[in-house]
Design a protein around this nucleic acid. Structure first.
Length: 686
DNA sequence: CTAGGGTTAG
């Protein structure tokens, strides 16, 4: 028999708890999500949850910006039999604050069946419209505001001015502003914000002078607005004139510099500023990433952790994109594990970031497992995996994914089709490219962008349908870019069509005179046709324009270190071993019957021996040699390079994968090559 | 006893 000790009986009352006995102090003392969850659980156990006050208080706690747990807030809301207007308002606001404005507006639609929205509902839902740039919906709600008589509520009115300002509808913003008799500071700020961000510098400054008082907000609206319309110098001028600056002003200015590409100025302010918050760090990390400074972004992410700051959703998006740019798989895995530790879900945008990161780091299997683990797969997730599979030459699986996605009822958008077209064009499936291009325009009414045309032109050139490609280029509604002309030029070289080749080269020089490839391909084409006078005139042109070959660069990660190799590099600590390995590779290739293909080497080098030597020092060969020495057998050798893989490197890497029985994965500037057993996943089509 | 409009990342 169990005998209860006095202390036991104290904590385990023998009679069931009476309903609604949750102490009020418990609700008030909740500081973290953990606290709220505990109280939530207790309220369910004791039956206190059934009290409408308790449930709506829990909802308010979950929705509180400091706790901000949208999913829990929603689950509480769903259990309230008849939610009152206050509960609706709290939930709608929470959706808007969590970038789920579309859901917020849907909720608002449900709400109006049961209640007349009040002066708390309206500002939230109007802000949601602003976030989505949904002017027609915003105008509809504006109509409702007038109808139900909130025409003079200052909160509702300033949210309307803000909505129109954010959407660039300054005429409407001004109209609402002018109608207000008593204009408070917030109302002024909403209007100035709009004029500044749409580039109406004079009007913004004039209003700024006219307004009765100015605090931090007004100044920062100008700083941010001028930055957003590309007038960063003007923004800096305002920033310097501010009587005093707060954290938000510094953040706005830093972000302005980052968006204008002035990474150095952003960094200077970051170092100078008195205090920094998570937004400061996020702006810097995302800013570095935006400007292609991936390494700096990653260093800053690490520095942020060292300072003890807690990264959030936005931080991870930036850090993962930086890793995608660098293609350092180990860092990507590490960040993924940190995300899990921080309890950050990979359901939304971060799921997309992870799929993209793993794809771009060469681990398509991990991308697939992230994808499979996402319970509610959205269009962005499907698109990311289709793009990822295509990048790795796995066209069939990409197309399977595409059909599966359509079976779930999702509508593909322009980027999804770009992934599909890229997958097919990388795999040489010319008829399928045509098929999906037509499906996109005819069945889905999606206007093709230059990238879509790029896929079509690329594949047509690759299979030698040069006339058709030329017709398509000439019929495109937009101006052809560098990529398009380069495809036509390469196709002309491969199929020996000098006429189209010259035409493409001329257009290419007009669009992008700095493109070295154009001169190389053209001069090689002339050389093949024996037109030596033209070969030398191209060489002179290059000399005159000072065009130099972008140095080839490859890197490989080993034991947490990035090893970078440029052509003919001798800087690595293992240089001696690397060059010894390269001689061994050369011998093995020779005995396997490999003959170097020098057709893509720039003809500035006259002598055939010199050309071969140039090829032999290509950066990826150094990286392969390093990999053969250092990467343990059984693990793939992963190499990232900045340029397209040349013909000869492609053939030797295939051979080497067989001769050394190693899997070699190379990411070049547009796709992945998986070399295994003497073959490449691109099926020699790149 | 709940909740409110304007500035910074996304």
């Amino acid at each position: 028999m169990l005998k209860l000790t006095p202390s036991h009986s104290l904590h385990q009352p023998l009679s069931p708890p009476s309903p609604h006995t949750l102490p009020f102090s418990l609700l008030q003392s909740c500081k973290t999500q953990q606290d709220v969850k505990r109280t939530h659980a207790l309220s369910l156990r004791t039956g206190a949850f059934d009290h409408p006050y308790i449930a709506s208080r829990l909802l308010a706690l979950y929705a509180d910006p400091k706790i901000n747990s949208l999913d829990y807030a929603r689950s509480v809301f769903d259990l309230i039999p008849v939610p009152d207007l206050v509960s609706w308002n709290i939930l709608i606001k929470c959706y808007v604050e969590n970038q789920r404005s579309h859901d917020a507006i849907c909720l608002f639609h449900d709400l109006v069946h049961e209640f007349t929205p009040d002066c708390f509902t309206l500002p939230s839902v109007i802000k949601g419209c602003a976030r989505l740039n949904a002017v027609p919906e915003g105008k509809q709600i504006h109509g409702l505001v007038v109808k139900i008589g909130f025409g003079l509520d200052k909160f509702v009115q300033s949210s309307l001015v803000s909505m129109y300002s954010r959407c660039g509808e300054m005429g409407y913003a001004r109209k609402v502003f002018d109608q207000m008799g008593e204009k408070d500071l917030v109302l002024w700020n909403c209007l100035i914000d709009g004029y500044a961000r749409c580039g109406e510098v004079e009007i913004a400054l004039q209003l700024f002078d006219e307004m009765p008082e100015r605090d931090y907000f007004s100044w920062t609206c100008l700083v941010d607005g001028f930055s957003k319309c590309g007038r960063v110098e003007m923004a800096r001028d305002v920033f310097d004139r501010m009587p005093s600056r707060n954290l938000v002003s510094w953040n706005a200015m830093i972000n302005g510099y980052m968006k204008s590409g002035d990474v150095e100025m952003a960094r200077r302010l970051f170092d100078e500023m008195p205090t920094r918050d998570v937004i400061t760090w996020n702006s810097m990390i995302a800013g570095y990433e935006f400007n292609g400074k991936f390494m700096e972004a990653l260093y800053l992410f690490i520095a942020m952790l060292k300072e003890g700051l807690v990264p959030n959703h936005t931080t991870f998006v930036g850090a993962l994109s930086a890793v995608s740019g660098l293609a350092v798989l180990s860092k990507g895995k590490w960040i993924h594990s940190l995300m899990v530790k921080c309890g950050i879900e990979s359901e939304g945008v971060l799921g997309t970031s992870l799929i993209e990161m793993y794809s771009k780091c060469g681990s398509v299997e991990s991308a697939l497992s992230v994808f499979r683990a996402i319970s509610k797969k959205k269009l962005g997730h499907w698109t990311a995996i289709i793009v990822g599979l295509g990048m790795h030459g796995m066209a069939e699986r990409a197309l399977e994914m595409f059909s599966e996605m359509r079976r779930t009822g999702l509508q593909p958008h322009a980027i999804t089709f770009l992934g599909v077209l890229n997958a097919c064009s990388h795999a040489g499936l010319v008829e399928l490219v045509r098929h999906y291009f037509n499906m996109m325009t005819n069945d889905y009414g999606i206007e093709p962008t230059i990238e879509h045309y790029g896929c079509l032109v690329f594949i047509l050139c690759r299979v030698g349908n040069l006339e058709e490609a030329k017709d398509i280029i000439e019929g495109m509604p937009m101006r052809p870019n560098k990529v398009i002309w380069m495809s036509l030029l390469s196709g002309s070289r491969n199929f020996g069509n000098i006429n189209i080749g010259e035409y493409a080269a001329q257009r290419l020089i007009e669009v992008a005179p700095e493109t070295i490839g154009c001169y190389v391909v053209l001069s090689n084409m002339y050389a093949a046709a024996g037109k030596w006078d033209k070969v030398s005139s191209i060489r002179e042109m290059m000399k005159k324009r000072g065009i130099k070959k972008e140095p080839g660069c490859s890197y490989i990660e080993h034991k947490g270190m990035l090893h970078e190799f440029i052509v003919g590099d001798k800087s690595d600590t293992q240089t001696k071993e690397i060059y010894a390995k390269m001689s061994e590779m050369r011998e093995r290739l020779k005995s396997a019957g490999h003959v170097p293909d020098t057709s893509q080497v720039l003809l500035c080098l006259e002598d055939e021996k010199e050309k071969e030597a140039e090829l032999e020092n290509h950066s990826e060969r150094l990286a392969i040699a390093f990999g053969l020495i250092n990467v343990e057998p059984g693990s793939p050798i992963r190499i990232i390079k900045n340029l397209r893989v040349c013909n000869d490197c492609h053939s030797i890497t295939k051979l080497l994968s067989d001769l050394y029985n190693r899997e070699i994965i190379v990411r070049d500037n547009s796709r992945f090559h998986h070399f295994k057993n003497g073959l490449c996943s691109c099926k020699d089509f790149w």
